[in-house]
Amino acid sequence: MDKNLKILVVDDFATMRRIIKNLLRELGFMNVAEADDGLTALPKLKTGEFDLLITDWNMPGMTGIDLLKAVRADEKLAHLPVLMVTAEARRDQIVAAAQAGVNGYIIKPFTASTLQEKLEKIFERLKA
């Protein structure tokens, strides 16, 4: 995995953002920015400087699933890999996320190895 990738972590809880950021740093990713919901994330993404989006589902303002849909609908962002890290674990939600074009889905609480595994899988697929 290219450790210079720029990653945007979107979660309304600062604690969870920090945990994900820490885990990413442990995996060697130092280039990480944060946003607290879809509405603040979208303008950041539109600058085009991010290589990966990690987002929660349940957030005020704009939810993760809406953010995912907005990303896929944006011509420039359509191919941005999106990893969902969320406590939402209903079958229909996971199916909906898949249909909206999510690249990976992790349910909370999760471990560092799950995060690493999913990231590796996403980048393997991108290369293929």
Binding site: W57, N58, M59, T63, G64, I65, T86, A87, E88, A89, R90, R91, D92, Q93, I94, A96, I107, K108
Partner: peptide, 18 residues
């Protein structure tokens, strides 16, 4: 498909366990 937060074992139906 609105988010509902974490599932609670034994309460939420249609949930994925892990």
């Amino acid at each position: 498909l609105a988010g509902r937060g974490p599932s609670v074992p034994g309460l939420d139906k249609g949930q994925i366990a892990n």
